[in-house]
Nucleic acid binder design. Structure first.
Length: 190
DNA sequence: GCTTACCACGATG
DNA sequence: CATCGTGGTAAGC
């Protein structure tokens, strides 16, 4: 089995973590108020020897993660390990990566773009292995409420609040639980 | 293999 | 508020 690196960092009361394969790149990212919950979530579905020794790549990934959490510009690109991602999920992730910072789109619009259905897109977004790196927080319901967000594989009110904060730090204006329609971005392309 | 139940949805009434 | 259609997934045979 392959050797993996698990690295975590605390920032502003929140724990951030990454699981990285030196060979193929970032397998998963996550964040949580609880360090143990974070590590447990990152370890799920991984069979392999886990090292806690930070690497340049893990340091870099955590730097980026905190930057993205703060709504700042990312300064480098992280390799993503697509190995355990279905073709459909990959398609959805690619569309999410096209959403500009400070904008949002809806599950249904992504579905139209890829000739699928909103619920199917919802399950794919929910299973995003790389929150923050792949900006699943920019996908919201068609009525432009903030919508749901899961952390550590589970939905929570905390997750929804985090999603709202992420969007606002990226410049999305939200009044009375409703996102400004100026922020709506319609996916482009074939 | 096939069937079913479950969803971070959307449209309708 | 309720209901239904929907597509992908995983768990169950």
């Amino acid at each position: 089995m392959e050797k993996l690196t698990l690295a975590t960092r605390e920032h502003d009361g929140t724990w951030f973590g990454v699981l990285i394969s030196g060979r193929s790149g970032l397998i998963a990212s996550s964040f949580s108020k609880s360090k143990v919950a974070l590590e447990r979530h990152l370890r799920t579905d991984t069979s392999g020897t886990i090292s806690r020794d930070p690497t340049r790549e893990s340091d870099n990934a955590l730097d980026q993660m905190v930057n993205l959490y703060e709504g700042k510009k990312s300064t480098s690109t992280i390799r993503l390990d697509w190995g355990s991602v279905s073709e459909f999920q990959k398609n959805v992730c690619e569309r999410m990566r096209e959403i500009p910072k400070g904008r949002v789109t809806s599950y249904g619009l992504i579905a139209q773009r890829i000739n699928s259905g909103p619920r199917a897109v919802g399950t794919a977004v929910a299973r995003n292995p790389w929150p923050l790196f792949v900006p699943c927080h920019r996908v919201v319901p068609a009525d432009l409420e903030v919508g749901n967000y899961s952390i550590g594989g589970a939905l929570s009110d905390y997750g929804c609040e985090v999603k709202r904060d992420l969007l606002e730090r990226e410049g999305v204006s939200i009044e009375a639980d409703r996102i400004s329609s100026k922020a709506l971005w319609v996916p482009t392309g074939a």
